[in-house]
Amino acid sequence: EEAIQNFKALLSDMVRSSDVSWSDTRRTLRKDHRWESGSLLEREEKEKLFNEHIEALTK
Rank of each mutant, 00 (worst) to 15 (best):
E1Q: 07
E1D: 01
E2Y: 01
E2P: 03
E2R: 11
E2G: 06
A3N: 10
N6Q: 13
N6V: 07
N6E: 10
N6D: 09
N6F: 00
F7L: 00
K8W: 00
K8E: 01
A9L: 10
A9F: 05
L10H: 05
L10M: 12
L11I: 01
L11M: 01
S12F: 08
S12K: 15
D13P: 00
D13F: 02
D13S: 06
M14S: 10
M14F: 08
M14R: 13
M14W: 09
V15N: 00
R16Q: 13
R16K: 14
R16M: 09
S17T: 13
S17W: 02
S17P: 01
S17H: 14
S17V: 07
S17A: 05
S18L: 06
S18T: 14
S18M: 05
D19C: 07
D19F: 01
D19G: 07
D19P: 04
V20H: 04
V20D: 05
V20N: 02
V20L: 09
S21D: 09
S21Q: 08
S21T: 14
W22T: 02
W22M: 04
W22I: 04
S23D: 14
D24V: 07
D24W: 02
T25F: 15
T25P: 00
T25R: 00
T25W: 07
R26M: 14
R26T: 11
R26E: 15
R26C: 14
R26K: 14
R27H: 15
T28A: 14
T28N: 12
T28E: 15
T28I: 14
L29V: 02
L29K: 01
L29N: 01
R30W: 05
R30G: 09
R30P: 07
R30Y: 09
K31E: 11
K31P: 05
K31N: 13
K31V: 05
D32T: 09
D32R: 00
D32N: 02
H33S: 13
R34D: 06
R34W: 04
W35N: 04
W35E: 09
W35H: 06
S37I: 01
S37N: 13
S37Q: 14
S37G: 11
G38K: 08
G38Y: 10
G38M: 14
G38T: 15
S39I: 08
S39D: 12
S39E: 12
S39P: 11
S39F: 11
L40I: 12
L40E: 13
L40W: 08
L40P: 12
L40G: 14
L40C: 13
L40R: 13
L40N: 13
L41H: 00
L41C: 03
L41R: 04
E42S: 15
E42L: 12
E42Y: 08
R43W: 14
R43S: 15
R43Y: 14
E44K: 13
E44Q: 11
K46F: 13
E47T: 03
E47G: 00
E47H: 11
E47Q: 08
K48R: 14
K48I: 05
K48V: 08
K48M: 10
L49G: 02
L49N: 06
L49D: 03
L49V: 02
L49S: 02
F50M: 03
F50A: 04
N51A: 09
N51D: 11
N51Y: 12
N51H: 09
E52F: 00
E52I: 02
E52H: 05
E52M: 08
H53Y: 01
H53A: 01
H53C: 00
I54D: 06
I54S: 08
I54Y: 01
I54Q: 09
I54G: 04
E55G: 09
E55S: 13
E55R: 11
E55T: 12
E55V: 12
A56T: 13
A56S: 13
A56Q: 13
A56M: 12
L57G: 02
L57E: 13
L57S: 08
T58P: 06
T58M: 08
T58Q: 11
T58C: 08
K59I: 07
K59T: 12
K59M: 12
